[in-house]
């Protein structure tokens, strides 16, 4: 499946005139079993694409929510290997929801790109976002992913001018992740009218669907982005629900999935009401 699974999902959503809801959760947060339960529940709660973070000790592009999620996961012994086990367990019950792994270079380097790509494909992973491997450093990784038919999903940002965009979209497939604000995850907010022209620009440069993330926390904001982008990525706001549930000793799974449901509803109905009369 792999690349095909991502393409099929975006094509189906386009036919329905609906933006993809891309949910990010951290593998092993707050522990392996709970995060597996959350991931298994995501499609039923309305997620169209699942990004699974694999934790790293020094996540330089993350804001406090995902930094803390990574530390919670690492404290419970989460690793890249266990993350692949989690994906494999999820795949036993779901053959259609794309799974994108997201994280930092060093665990991948330590594993070896070729071995990782092979093992990830076997586990049922469809694509990879490597936050700190820009195009200048990505060729060995892209070769490995190509050989395993996995998508390398690239980040385009507000600092990507047209010349840079051409470099960014080289060897990318599946979709492009547009980072809507200059900054770390989960801090600044993205304005839909500011984002919209960039989505058009990135879509034109790549010929791929464009999902927008960073700073999308509420159903209202998610709906606004869903009107202008092919996908809406929410991460920190879900990870925050894990922390909030732990703080008051509630069910983490129920709390995260409830947040996913409210966001999914906003995203799936966003284009049903025409913006202009």
């Amino acid at each position: 499946m792999t690349k095909a699974r991502i393409e099929a999902r975006f094509a189906a959503l386009k036919a329905e005139d609906r933006a993809a809801f891309v949910t990010y959760v951290m593998a092993g947060d707050p522990d392996y079993a709970t995060s597996l339960e959350i991931v298994k529940g995501l499609p039923g709660a309305g997620a169209d694409v699942i990004e699974i973070g694999f934790p790293f000790s020094d996540p330089m592009a993350e804001g406090p929510p995902i930094q803390r999620a990574a530390l919670r996961a690492l404290d419970k012994g989460m690793t890249l290997a266990r993350t692949l086990e989690l994906v494999a367990e999820f795949r036993q019950g779901d053959q259609t929801t794309p799974i994108i792994m997201m994280g930092y270079a060093n665990p991948l380097v330590r594993w070896g790109y070729d071995a990782f790509a092979r093992d990830a494909a076997a586990a049922g992973v469809d694509g990879l976002i490597a936050v700190d491997i820009p195009p200048e450093e990505a060729d060995p990784l892209a070769d490995a992913l190509d050989a395993a038919d996995l998508s390398l999903i690239r980040l385009a940002t507000p600092t990507s001018d047209d010349a840079r965009l051409k470099i960014v979209v080289r060897r990318t497939s599946g979709f492009v992740y547009y980072v809507s604000v200059a900054g770390v995850t989960g801090v600044k907010e993205a304005e839909a009218d500011v984002v919209a022209p960039h989505v058009l620009r990135v879509r034109a440069a790549s010929g791929l669907p464009v999902s927008v993330g960073f700073g999308i926390k509420t159903p209202e904001r998610a709906a606004a982005i869903a009107k202008v982008a092919d996908g809406v990525v929410v991460g920190s706001a879900l990870v925050d629900e894990v922390a909030a549930a732990l703080a008051v000793n509630e069910s983490v799974t129920a709390r995260v999935l409830s947040k996913v449901e409210s966001l999914a509803k906003a995203i799936s109905t966003a284009r049903a009401h025409p913006v202009s009369a």
């Binding site: 936050v131 820009p134 200048e136 450093e137 980040l155 940002t157 600092t159 990507s160 840079r164 980072v179």
Partner: peptide
């Protein structure tokens, strides 16, 4: 060596 940084920083 190399330049292993998030895309936002690459132009900088």
């Amino acid at each position: 060596g190399g330049r292993y940084v998030p895309e936002t920083l690459m132009p900088l």
